[in-house]
Amino acid sequence: MVEYRTVQTTCTYCGCGCGLLLEVMDEGLVGTLPMKTHPINEGTLCIKGWSVHEFVQNEKRLLRPLVRENGDFREVDWEDALKLVASRLKEIRDTSGPDSIAGLSSAKCTNEENYLFQKWMRVVVGTNNVDHCARL
């Protein structure tokens, strides 16, 4: 059975939100096209957008959280990963103070998520050490 279709989606790489068409052939992703009729990118993309189909199915892509123990990584589920992060952050804050922690947010998030993140750093953790990957 031959198959070729394109699936409309939004690029996950940054906050611009460019429209993409992922090309599906025989149930596999084979390419990315910029959406010509999308109001944001109007048929253009950057090199990251053009390569979306590659990272989606890259074998090096992390699919589960990893915890480093004695220099090695161990796969854990989300519940355990979040529990560990929360308890360690609390421990560091209590022993070394809130300003020993910094938060780095992401250009891949929405404005609302970034707002929430800085709010969380300031109110819950208690520090103004917040920055954003787009400034790196």
Partner: peptide, 12 residues
């Protein structure tokens, strides 16, 4: 035409 946008497709 899908969701108001024209996109390449193989009609079978």
């Amino acid at each position: 035409m899908v969701n108001g946008h024209p996109m390449p497709s193989l009609f079978t």
